[in-house]
């Protein structure tokens, strides 16, 4: 019996070591430990073993059974591992590049616009929107622009023929002409006409000037304007806003200054300069970044606000100019060419 068991285990060990697939394994398993298996057959002989030898034989059988099971387990583990390996295939070269293009990128003008909106949102400005096709009223008249002001000239502003109609751009007067807005201030007018103060909006958007395209000019470009209307709004509040915006955007070493200037829709009016030591093109120089002022009483009258009761400020700037400053871009045309080598630099 002992010899038979030893021989069986030895044969099974050799046998199982050669197995590579699950069906063969299952067959081998049945051959040894199945109901008709060899070990099972030996175990059935226990009945014919003399009583006094039974404990010893039983021990021998148990030992053999345990060793056989260990061999089976090992073989199964080996086969399962081989199966997994086959499923996985060869190891990848993790240093090979992905053939997928990407990642996608947001345009630098979007990045700058969104950053400005985020900064302004923190102090209560909501983003407003309005049409790019405008009328003379919203773009000029309501903004206290005299009827023969040079900005309204066909030399500087794109107009549409008198017969052109826009189904979803409202006119104030039936005879006024449609045009492409020259600034996003028209959004301020539409917003103020919609409801009473207080108003705290930022209006970013595309604007149009009839201008030669060169390194610093483009027929369409982007602006961002802020408007705040409430009671007791002061010049000092305006300066505080500008200080806050540019310190948030460019860091605490940024300084702003106001230079008195002239705009028809604000009084007093200022141009805003900034200086920030760490910006490559700015250093200690003052760079003009935008215009601002206190909303002119004439504008309030145009939208039906009482100028005795309400006061407000407005600030506007060019987004391309700001992006050029922030990123050190020296030609505005890069923004509209969309060369991927450009677009991928900023996201």
């Amino acid at each position: 019996m002992q010899d038979q068991l030893t021989a069986l285990v030895a044969r099974a060990t050799a046998d199982l070591a050669a197995l590579n697939a699950r069906p063969e394994f299952e067959a081998a398993k049945a051959r040894y430990v199945g109901p008709n298996g060899e070990l099972t057959a030996l175990m059935k002989q226990m009945g014919s073993v003399p009583k006094e030898q039974r404990p010893a034989v039983g021990r021998l059988i148990n030992e053999a059974k345990a060793r056989l099971q260990a061999q089976l387990d090992a073989a199964l583990a080996r086969i399962a591992a081989a199966e997994l390996a086959a499923q996985l295939g060869p190891a990848v070269d993790v240093t090979l590049p992905s053939p997928d293009a990407g990642p996608g990128t947001r345009h630098p003008l979007t990045l700058v616009r969104e950053e400005m909106c985020r900064i302004l949102r923190k102090v209560g400005f909501a983003v407003a929107d309005g049409p790019e096709v405008e009328t003379e009223y919203y773009c000029f008249d309501a903004l206290n622009t005299p009827s023969d002001h040079p900005a309204r000239d066909a030399q500087d502003t794109f107009y549409f023929p008198a017969s052109t109609r826009f189904g979803n751009v409202s006119k104030m007067n039936p005879e006024e002409k449609y045009l492409l807005r020259t600034h996003t201030s028209s959004v301020q007018i539409r917003t103020m006409l919609k409801g009473p103060p207080p108003i705290r909006i930022v209006s970013p958007g595309r604007v149009y000037r009839r201008d030669t395209t060169d390194a610093t000019h483009s027929a369409n470009f982007h602006q961002l304007e802020c408007l705040y209307v409430d009671q007791h709004v002061t010049v000092r509040d305006l300066k505080a806003l500008l200080d806050y915006i540019f310190a948030s955007l460019l860091g605490p070493d940024t300084k702003t200054r106001f230079r008195p200037h002239y705009f028809g829709y604000t009084e007093p009016s200022f141009e805003v300069d900034l200086t920030a030591n760490h910006l490559p093109k700015v250093k200690k120089d003052w760079i003009e970044i935008g215009g601002c002022g206190m909303v002119d009483p004439a504008v309030f009258e145009a939208v039906g606000y009482d100028p005795e009761r309400w006061s407000g400020y407005a600030f506007g700037m060019g987004l391309e100019r700001l992006a050029m400053l922030l990123y050190g871009i020296d030609d505005i045309r890069y923004f509209y060419q969309n060369d991927l080598r450009f677009l991928k630099q900023f996201a």
């Binding site: 949102r121 209560g124 909501a126 200080d243």
Partner: peptide, 22 residues
């Protein structure tokens, strides 16, 4: 205008939501 004293932005809270187009 260089003598306009500095101040903190006074923010009375959000006056509206961003435009649906935005």
């Amino acid at each position: 205008t260089e003598r306009i004293p500095a101040a903190l932005v006074s923010s009375p809270g959000l006056s509206g939501d961003d435009d649906p187009v935005v």
